[in-house]
Design a protein around this nucleic acid. Structure first.
Length: 351
DNA sequence: CGACTCACGTCCGACAGAAG
DNA sequence: CTTCTGTCGGACGTGAGTCG
């Protein structure tokens, strides 16, 4: 699957499950036997290429419809059709409302990057972090398998014990993501190194005949020569994020320099700050890594610089949601050394 | 609070039989 | 003969309970 196909899949998911749609979820739309269009089906199966959470029992969804209505799993609470985590309450209706409340909480926390608070939510890790990833704007790394995560944590020098949380490990991974890899490529690299697929590559039949290997997961880096052009229009989610960051920045600058000196959306410049002895151009980007924001913004910045006739010195500032990592800083330093253009990166928190 | 055990549903390989 | 389809059962991973 190409990167564009992965992004398209994520777009499709976010399009189908906007926060509004999640807020209006019914139990039947959340999880159900035989229904391929439920929220849980989307998270587990349709978006499998964005990191698999197959396996484990359906209790990972918090509440699920049993295949065998006569069974009553002792570990969970049950009625004649559904089973759910004991912590979610005494009947089906309450249990589902609590599950939904937690899903919404995960979405909201993930969108603003408050990942440590997700650890405290009752839902099982596998499902919880897949949901978090889907709404993180490609900030989290899509790896969910526990022992793989712990191996990776140790590799990056994080001392782990059984109290180590997933958000701590995610944080280490995010800080170590190379600037030239997107989260999927980074996931692939980590999985190749720390995944547990070794030894399964060669299955030889009992006779002289070689039996064809059954592939459970198609390689993400498979050659694909079809020419595809992704539509350049920004997705709804990216648009929303862009607006939130822009608003936060506007507030920040107006507070600091006064409304009269801050110009919004003039000549396609997101925000312009006018000062007696210089002008700053702010270019807002919705990507979740500073280096990605800068990469996207540089071309535009060069054009502003070319077209602007004001004689005052000009500063260019790329604005994104998250602070720079060490890898981002390396990239920025490299650019600064090689470009005759003053620019900087600024991160702005959103709510 | 930690170590251990139990229960459970899903995945996946093995296998059998049907179809080609 | 090969290939396809369906079923079975063990392995697995994890929430919850128990014991000290």
């Amino acid at each position: 699957m190409t990167i564009n196909e992965l992004k398209e899949l994520l777009d499709n998911f976010l399009d189908r499950w906007t926060i509004e749609n999640v807020q209006n979820l019914t139990l039947q739309e959340y999880v159900g036997l035989g229904n391929k269009d439920t929220f849980c089906q989307w998270v587990e199966t349709k978006t499998r290429m964005l990191g698999s959470i197959k396996g484990m029992t359906s209790i990972k969804f918090g509440i699920y419809e049993r295949k065998d209505p006569t069974k009553r799993p002792k570990n969970y609470k049950n009625d004649n059709q559904y089973s759910w985590l004991q912590g979610y309450g005494d009947n089906r209706k309450i249990a589902f409302e609590n599950t939904k409340r937690d899903i919404i909480k995960i979405i909201q926390l993930s969108e603003v990057g408050k990942f440590p608070e997700i650890d405290n939510i009752l839902l099982p890790d596998l499902f919880k972090w897949k949901v978090a990833f889907l709404y993180s704007n490609e900030r989290l790394i899509p790896i969910y398998k526990r022992d793989v995560l712990f191996k990776i944590a140790n590799h990056f020098g994080l001392k782990t014990n059984r109290h180590t949380t997933i958000s701590e490990i995610q944080n280490v991974m995010m800080l170590n993501k190379p600037a030239h890899l997107n989260v999927y490529a980074f996931m692939r690299q980590l999985y190749d190194q720390f995944g547990d697929n070794e030894g399964k590559n060669e299955i030889v039949g009992s006779t002289t005949r070689k039996r064809q290997r059954r592939t459970t997961r198609r390689a993400a880096n498979g050659r694909n020569t079809t020419t595809q052009t992704r539509t350049v229009t920004r997705s709804y989610v990216a648009e929303q994020k862009h607006n939130k960051i822009q608003e936060a920045l506007l507030k920040l600058l107006s507070g600091k320099y006064g409304n009269e000196n801050v110009v919004l959306e003039e000549n396609y410049v997101d925000i312009k700050l006018i000062q007696p002895n210089y002008i700053s151009f702010y270019e807002v980007k919705s990507s979740s890594y500073a280096s990605e924001c800068i990469k996207e913004a540089l071309g535009q910045i060069l054009l502003y610089s070319l077209n602007d006739t004001d004689k005052r010195p000009k500063k260019h500032i790329v604005v994104g949601q998250y602070p720079t990592t060490d890898n981002d800083k390396k990239y920025i330093d490299f650019l600064k050394q090689n470009l005759k253009l003053e620019f900087d990166y600024l991160n702005v928190e959103i709510e």
